[in-house]
Design a protein around this nucleic acid. Structure first.
Lengths: 213, 213
DNA sequence: GTTTTAACATACGTATCTGTTTGTATAATT
DNA sequence: AATTATACAAACAGATACGTATGTTAAAAC
């Protein structure tokens, strides 16, 4: 019965993987540890050996992934201001493509969205807010740089552009994940991004004339 | 022990009201019927008298409210095309104000967002999708009318405008409701709407010149 | 080679939640 | 006034699900 350290690590991982699938399918609250154990091909004994309880299992699962927005970094804020906007747009588009291609992240994101945050897993909410806040600050700075160099038209401030982008991304992903992925996330998302960033640009007179024509 | 019909209806309503608060605080899955009963000042007997089980209670609660988007109607699509955009914008802004002022709707919306939709309450999901779809069609038609009359600039199609608006509203409300209402929903929402609808407008040359200056 | 200990499986006790059943006081009915 | 049906409360029975305690086997440690 006693396994090697490598085997133990394997079962631990299989438990985490099973928990991800079960939590995704039944919801964290409705899933029992026995459900997870059966999905992992072990008994609850194994789960209680590796984790102290369901909350702990959830927290550990949560720690295995990079948060939804954590890697959506504006890679290089030291870039020429003229390219800042296109870099952000590309970064957001890439992130959508990554999500669309990675079922693992889709499940984690969905679990987090539908999670009934009780007092027990307050740390999860706090970490999420912290990541969100960092991301907001980063975007604010990048847009401010673009604004100061004249690449953001009079309609938009740095803060309002940040919020518009974040709200659009959040709404887009929520609808896609929670409502059955009924459209092409990457394609429609990038299309939306293109239009949003198009509305950021100052309008040269020639383009304006063309649009009116 | 036997109450009058009016009293019975009163307890029924108090049960629904208590369910709303308890479901909001603990999540639908984590809340027991005894929690609801205690919050309502009755026993589970009363709940089982008025409702057949927790799912039924949830469905009845769900039916007491107009859905989040159900009343966000473009009131008059027969209006002059020039005013369609401003009517939609005002309608969305009013809806945000209504949500910000109505804690009842906030709780219902939050419950629906965080709800781990099992197979049992599939009808809820279906009705929500139906409402969403109707709303999308209405917006599509309205934007199409505006577009055909030249009130939507070349960057936007009717469909893309609809999606941009819906995503923004959804992201906005999700962040506000799920992350502790950390900003002024009506004020910031209307601000975002103003900028979004500003980007819809065709740019007259005079304005364009002013923006560049 | 023996002992120890890690990595589980199994078994147990318990709390909780659910659904039903029974009891009961009173409003409504006749 | 007697009866009946209503609107619950209280008690009961069954099923989970949880946490723990104990058993078991094989890998390490010595």
């Amino acid at each position: 019965m006693r396994r090697t350290k490598a085997e133990a690590e394997e079962t631990r991982n299989s438990i985490l993987s099973a928990a991800e699938r079960v939590f995704f399918e039944k919801g964290v609250a409705n899933a029992s540890l026995d459900d997870v154990a059966k999905a992992a091909g072990v008994t609850r004994g194994a789960i209680y050996w590796h984790f102290s309880n369901k909350t702990d299992l959830f927290l550990e699962l949560y720690n295995t992934v990079t948060l939804p927005l954590e890697d959506m970094i504006v890679r290089d804020t030291e870039q020429p201001a003229g390219e800042v906007l296109s870099v952000i747009e590309k970064s957001a588009g890439d992130w959508l493509e990554g999500l669309a291609a990675d079922e693992h992240r889709q499940r984690i994101f969905t679990i987090l969205l539908r999670c009934p945050y009780g007092d027990d897993l307050l740390p999860v909410l706090e970490k999420q807010q912290e990541v969100d806040d960092r991301h907001t600050v980063m975007l604010d700075n990048a847009f401010a740089k673009a604004k100061s160099e004249g690449f953001l038209n009079g309609n938009w401030t740095a803060q309002s552009a940040t919020k518009a982008l974040r709200w659009m991304m959040e709404g887009l992903c929520s609808e896609w994940l929670l409502f059955g992925r009924r459209f092409d996330l990457a394609a429609e998302g990038k299309d939306g991004l293109r239009r949003l960033f198009g509305s950021f640009q100052p309008v040269p007179e020639s383009v304006s004339a063309a649009a009116v024509s």
